[in-house]
Amino acid sequence: MLTTVSLSLLVQALVNGLLLGLVYTLISLGLSLTLGIMGVVNVAHSTLIMLGSYLALELLQRLGLDPIISAVIAVPVFFLIGVLLERLLISRVARTSQTTGLLVLFGVLVVIEGAAILRWTTDTQVLSVSYTNTSLTLDGIAIAVPRLIAAAIALVLVLLLDTFLRSTLYGKAIRAMSQNLDAARISGIDTDRLSLLVFGLATATAGVGGVTLAMIFPFDPQDHYRWLAWAFLVVVIGGLGSIRNTLLAGLLIGLIETLSSVLFPFQYVYFIVYLLLVVALLVRGQGLAGSQSRAL
């Protein structure tokens, strides 16, 4: 039997879960894009998310910039990082074996994580701004303001990307490329240049995702694996090639996390998520493996 208190607790968990789910969608989009369109599994994805968090931290500490502004700044900054990574490494890797590609990206992970430890040490950081500990209360349901803002940023970015992929000719070309690479090339599409664009966009979403995560959670240079796990889970459940399915999967993971943290001690969230991951891989794995026939 649910008392009114636990019911409002449940509703609060639901709302929080949906907000969190939007952020999880954002941090998963990049992984889904590079995998679905370029066939590249970016194991370094979560280190880019982590760099996004530190960008927000640096901009706040040095220039006093609000994370909302940092989220905007992160778009061009991380787009550029993504373009550089693609040009320097990914484009080379695409022509070699899958093993080489994975090793190179693993190397990127090691370099970024190591550099982050050198620069920021392994101390845990938090972004604290004026509204950090404030919350809105509606009908007895409290919603943390930073979480609301982070979710709003995530929602805007997800919608923008979806519109871009659906409605612009470049977006259609990117989708065409993911559906049939050779047919796209013989239709005159320069798939090398589009890969640059895709990796740039994927990295930009990771960077902004990092900013939004930093508004909600404390962070350090090494706990990004958690986000890699979450993002991978969202991709496995949501499948490739559809932002809407990624969004649904992201919301689902957000809900599962908040609901299970109401019911179980915090660390159990990890096991529930791992269990989900295993089940999802067993159920959907072959589908993912099928789309994975080319290169990396």
């Binding site: 899958q98 093993t99 994975l102 890699l228 794995g285 072959q286 493996a289």
Partner: peptide
């Protein structure tokens, strides 16, 4: 049962 990339991640 899956290809190497999924195993690696």
């Amino acid at each position: 049962r899956l290809r190497g990339v999924y195993f690696a991640i």
